[in-house]
């Protein structure tokens, strides 16, 4: 369900860009961070085979995130306003690299990159949420995208509990980062459920 929600979020995002011929309201910085997240995490495509499903999803997430970046940077460039997308990503990249160096399952390059990608994914939404707060409102379709994207990691939580009891497996790095990631959406979800799903416009209180 988490994976499908993630997949759905990307489909919604592409649908929003295509139908409105615009990437207004979407943070380029957040989208660029996702490209970095997927490239650093899915390096194991080249040596760690899990399943056709797993490989297909990894390829899709890399390809679609690069494609969204292309759409924003070239095809719909005039519709993107960098002056409201001002979050400093350096504040995210530095700490995530440090977290990757401290918390990893083996002190080697690929494992550090994997851990870095987990932490970075947890906070990659911040430039987008920052932008949302600055503008104070959003198109409904953009909020559906964010809701699906936020639900995705939240849906992993019951899966982790299940695997803890069922398979006796726990991945502390993914769990802690996943809880942080989900936590960052709580404010957004509150407004989404109380406004957008009641048929009102997404508007933040002044």
């Amino acid at each position: 369900a988490g994976d499908i929600s993630h997949l759905a979020s990307i489909v919604i995002l592409l649908h929003k860009i295509y139908t409105s011929h615009s990437c207004r309201g979407i943070s380029f910085k957040t989208q660029a961070l996702y490209v970095l997240v997927f490239l650093t995490r899915y390096l194991d495509l080249f040596w760690h085979w899990v399943s056709l499903y797993n490989t297909a999803m990894k390829v899709f997430f890399i390809a679609s995130s690069v494609y969204v970046l292309y759409l924003m940077k070239y095809k719909y460039r005039p519709t993107h306003d960098p002056s409201i997308d001002t979050f400093k990503v350096e504040y995210l990249l530095g700490p995530c690299l440090i977290l990757g160096l401290i918390f990893n399952y083996e002190f080697k390059f690929t494992e550090i990159l994997w851990s870095f990608s987990i932490w970075l994914e947890a906070v990659a939404i911040l430039p987008q949420l920052f932008m949302l707060q600055r503008t104070g409102e959003a198109e409904a379709i953009t909020t559906h995208y964010l809701a699906a994207l936020g639900a995705y990691r939240a849906l992993y939580i019951p899966n982790w509990i299940w695997r803890y009891f069922g398979d006796n497996v726990v991945d502390p790095i993914a769990v802690v980062a996943g809880l942080v990631q989900t936590g960052l959406y709580l404010d957004f979800f509150y407004v989404y459920f109380t406004k957008v799903l009641q048929g009102q416009k997404f508007e933040l209180p002044a």
């Binding site: 994976d3 194991d44 797993n54 992993y156």
Partner: peptide, 10 residues
């Protein structure tokens, strides 16, 4: 725990 088992997640 076998961490490869966990890394079958996305």
């Amino acid at each position: 725990a076998d961490k490869n088992l966990v890394k079958d997640e996305l």
